[in-house]
Design a protein around this nucleic acid. Sequence first.
DNA 1: ACGTAAGCGAGACGGTACGTCGTGTCTTCGG
DNA 2: CCGAAGACACGACGTACCGTCTCGCTTACGT
Lengths: 211, 211, 211, 211
Amino acid sequence: MSVQKSAAPGKTHPDATRRSERSRRAIYDAALTLVGEVGYPKTTIEAIAARAGVGKQTIYRWWSSKADVLLEAFLDLGEQAAQAAGQESHAIPDTGDLAADLKAVLRATVDELRDPKFEAPSRALAAEGVVNEELGRVFVTKLLEPSLQLYVDRLRSAQEAGDIRPDVDPRIALELFVSPLAQRWLQHTAPFSYDYTDTLVDYALYGLAPR
Amino acid sequence: MSVQKSAAPGKTHPDATRRSERSRRAIYDAALTLVGEVGYPKTTIEAIAARAGVGKQTIYRWWSSKADVLLEAFLDLGEQAAQAAGQESHAIPDTGDLAADLKAVLRATVDELRDPKFEAPSRALAAEGVVNEELGRVFVTKLLEPSLQLYVDRLRSAQEAGDIRPDVDPRIALELFVSPLAQRWLQHTAPFSYDYTDTLVDYALYGLAPR
Amino acid sequence: MSVQKSAAPGKTHPDATRRSERSRRAIYDAALTLVGEVGYPKTTIEAIAARAGVGKQTIYRWWSSKADVLLEAFLDLGEQAAQAAGQESHAIPDTGDLAADLKAVLRATVDELRDPKFEAPSRALAAEGVVNEELGRVFVTKLLEPSLQLYVDRLRSAQEAGDIRPDVDPRIALELFVSPLAQRWLQHTAPFSYDYTDTLVDYALYGLAPR
Amino acid sequence: MSVQKSAAPGKTHPDATRRSERSRRAIYDAALTLVGEVGYPKTTIEAIAARAGVGKQTIYRWWSSKADVLLEAFLDLGEQAAQAAGQESHAIPDTGDLAADLKAVLRATVDELRDPKFEAPSRALAAEGVVNEELGRVFVTKLLEPSLQLYVDRLRSAQEAGDIRPDVDPRIALELFVSPLAQRWLQHTAPFSYDYTDTLVDYALYGLAPR
DNA sequence: ACGTAAGCGAGACGGTACGTCGTGTCTTCGG
DNA sequence: CCGAAGACACGACGTACCGTCTCGCTTACGT
């Protein structure tokens, strides 16, 4: 996968120093636009090349598949957004009130998942990752886990403050409220709302059984 | 979508009474087999037709897409499995020990998700459902929700027994342990084990905060 | 070929006495109309059946091919025209002036060949006959030769009158003026006119060499 | 039609300078071979492509129809034969004896029409030309008329020599012996022989009426 | 008069070929 | 010497007809 940093053992990339930055950007833009317009399955490499004003070979030279192009385009989009947002931290706030902090972050996540600009490509990537293990691995590693790690950090801090039982595994704990939201979004099993995410946090923190 | 009960407003199906049961079965078998053998993306309608000994048109006559064929084939597989299992109830056991009951069911689910016979087609359908809302809707309605309803029933019973707080919404509550498992399976975010599902049940029932 | 009267040695026709005259007529009409409208190659048996309000099998029951249907339809058209024209003889007039008689008949032929009602089907049949020897044989036997025989008769009469050399073979002689006209019509090698057919008769009767 | 020289007003051909000569030749060969083997109607574009080891698209890129492919293949065959024959003139011999010269050429024509190598494709093209005016036009222009022009030349020479009446139109005169032969061949109206063509020349030159 | 067997309209079926589109490779040519 | 342009072999698409095969349903015999 092109995303890897280390040199692939097989055929290596051409000289990256001579690469046209112009083309790279145009391809990212075209790919994201097309996925938004016609959906992932109808987005073709030929169309991306045509829209980007680029030869097909220029795409095949640097990426191995449509999914690969889109994945890098999406990563790039994220980086750009991050830079645009300046140094605004992605860390989860730590006001001392764990429930409130988690609810706030999940509400922000709800908003983000509803942003149509991100929806089409991220949904496409998630779907491809379900079926294509290689891409899925990269998707999780590069995009998903870094986000989840923020929850791990906040939960550890809560453990130190005594708000979470010390024997709880934060990496599993975060799934109690993150995964339900993810599933509702991915599989349209049910709509989501602020109320819903708030409830998730309450249930997760205090459990279902009577205290 | 062929799965719909109501007559479609657009072009209607041909006379279903004259339909060849033989062909229908052969197509289901071929579709499931091929998805298992070469994966969903490389499964083509031409190959299904050839393998089933059927004209392509016979597929296009009754289904609107590859995804539609596979969905029905999978539904049919489920029905057959259900019938084969006779009246053996799918209900979640109710021994009075809620945690034990849930852990047992989730362990069984883990086993099922690992069964390669079911994995390829269900993964394919789930992925398609992520990106194709119409199919996703049917997938959820016909396959997912009926299974989830069983948890709702068991949780309600637990509420009556006083094992779950009465103000808890069972439909949301079940997501605390089902969705994390689903996400690990779908997105390969992390491997799953009996330990993991046991932990999920414990966290969900008793919460993360100190009691 | 269905046109044959004698029972074919192989599979025999179904009971002809129960045949639906209504369907037969409707099929002839539909076939001729369609050939006129969309041309022979785009005329399909399915379309003929649909247009005639007839099941496909009713066509396959009585005819062996599209060409066969059209041939019979055209023969029937000719018979109908003949009957409509009453007993008006098709014989070539014999006024005693051979050249004038031939010119008159050829002028009538020119008119007929230009009648669009006849053009499409007869052109289609002629073309099919070029490539399909079996049909070509029937076409020539049933349609072409009977017409040519009329010229043979007239030329023989002229031989008796001393207007044609007695050693001339009339069957060959008629081709001197009939075939050129046929070729111009069939192959669009050149347009035809009354002048042209008059010239043909003159050349044929008196030769090219100085007298 | 691809044969046209002028740029078509509609969609234009792709860049002809990059065209694969190899493919072109292989397609010609495959087309002619297949027409010879299975006949024109059973010759499919798919089969031509497969036999030629070529993608279907490469055929559709350069030709508009099966007939068009075959026409060019046949024209090419003629050109190759012409080149192979070197500068050997195609002109009709002029020994001074017009009748003998014509008889000789017609006898050669009879032989050529019987050559199975030429028969299948030329018959197929002629048939197609009967029904498809556009192709017919090209067929006549490129193949038929150039041959007929040779007769025009010889007849004019005969006129200068006084062997043909000066008021005779050579373009019409040649049809007296060429068209009958053509019709017998095309429509199987009757078999042909050297005797027959000899007779045609005699009748045509000296007429049917007593001298 | 009444089955019963045929022709009939209808149309689903297994196939073949169509003409188009996209893939990934390869070659040509211009900046 | 990279990159745009695009021709190429390949293969799947979804459609159109082919010719065969049931389906009921008349319709007309032959007992």
